[in-house]
Simulated assay, not measured.
Amino acid sequence: MAGETPRAQPPPLDPVPAPEGHPHHVLWRWRRNPLRRRTDRLHAWIALGLLLAVLAAAPAAMFAVGDAAHRHYRATAEQQARTRDHRPAVLVHDAPRHPEPGSAEAKRTRYPVEVRFTGPDGAARTGETDVEPGLPADSTVLVWVDAAGEITAPPLTGDQIRSRATGWAILAFLGVALTGLAAHGVTGMVLHRVNLARWDAAWAVTEPRWSRSS
């Protein structure tokens, strides 16, 4: 009907707040607003400084630690190659047989068996080494022997050196990143306590006036 007063409409809904992690939520400390405190701005600058520090220090630490580890393990491999010999050894007894002879698993399986060999000093020695399944007694295998005449692992290979150096480099990168995160967390807690202390001081001044006015 013409001239009829329109029905009242409900007020518009408040906008949905930005979720945690949203850029609007993450960057609020950088925007001017009446609720932003000096500690909020300081926290934002500290977070930015820590981020830049981690981005600069993590690759440098990764390279330095990885290079040092690579040189260490390469020197270790060279020392092992000088002091370890590949010597023949004879099985003292038969090696166990695999339940599935001829299978792919049997080709990869090794069993510890006692062997007899001659040490660097010429004396007869016995030890234990891993051999293929089913080898009969008196079979000859090659074992690595150290300067003390003990059966040991072969010298480190190039792949093992690179793998271990890479592992240390990754640990260095993670260490720098975790240190940055810890520093950010500690800074946040300290500034939060500063905010609480300032709020308590301000309330101690305001509360008496608030009580009298009520």
Rank of each mutant, 00 (worst) to 15 (best):
T39H: 00
A47L: 11
P10K: 11
A2L: 13
A8V: 10
R209C: 00
I46V: 15
D121G: 02
G158K: 09
R110D: 08
P6G: 06
V26S: 06
L13G: 10
R110Q: 12
H72P: 01
D14L: 15
Q80P: 00
E207I: 03
G102W: 05
S214E: 07
Y73A: 03
T39D: 07
L196C: 00
L50R: 02
V190C: 06
A172G: 08
D94I: 11
D85S: 15
V26K: 09
P112F: 04
I170G: 11
F63M: 06
G102V: 09
P34T: 01
L191T: 05
V143N: 08
P101A: 11
R116F: 02
L42F: 14
N33F: 00
R41K: 02
D130C: 05
V26F: 06
L174K: 01
A69N: 04
A53V: 02
R41F: 06
A182L: 12
G158L: 10
T5F: 05
D67I: 03
L35G: 06
A153E: 15
E114C: 00
P136M: 05
V131W: 07
S211R: 14
V141C: 11
K107L: 07
L27A: 02
V205S: 07
P59F: 10
L35D: 00
T152D: 10
G21L: 08
L27R: 07
R82D: 14
L91N: 06
H98T: 10
A95H: 08
V92I: 15
F117H: 04
G134R: 10
P15V: 09
R162A: 15
R125Q: 13
D130P: 00
R82Q: 15
T126D: 03
T126E: 14
H24L: 14
R193T: 06
I170K: 06
V131K: 06
Y73L: 12
E78C: 00
L156Y: 06
G122D: 09
A89Y: 07
D146V: 04
R31G: 00
F63S: 02
R162F: 05
V90R: 15
A60M: 13
P34G: 05
P6A: 09
G66C: 07
G49D: 01
F117R: 00
A69E: 10
N33R: 14
L181I: 06
V141W: 06
P15M: 10
R116N: 08
E114I: 00
I161N: 12
S103K: 13
A18R: 06
P136K: 09
V115A: 05
R74Q: 15
G134I: 03
R212M: 04
A77F: 11
G134W: 07
M189R: 13
A44D: 12
I46Q: 01
S211P: 00
G127A: 02
W168P: 03
H25A: 14
A204E: 13
E100Y: 10
L174Y: 03
D130N: 11
W144S: 12
T157A: 05
S163N: 12
G49I: 02
P155G: 10
A2Y: 12
L174R: 01
R82S: 14
W203G: 01
A95G: 10
R125S: 08
R37P: 01
P10E: 14
S214G: 14
G158W: 01
P17T: 09
R37L: 14
R125A: 09
G158Y: 03
A44L: 02
N33S: 08
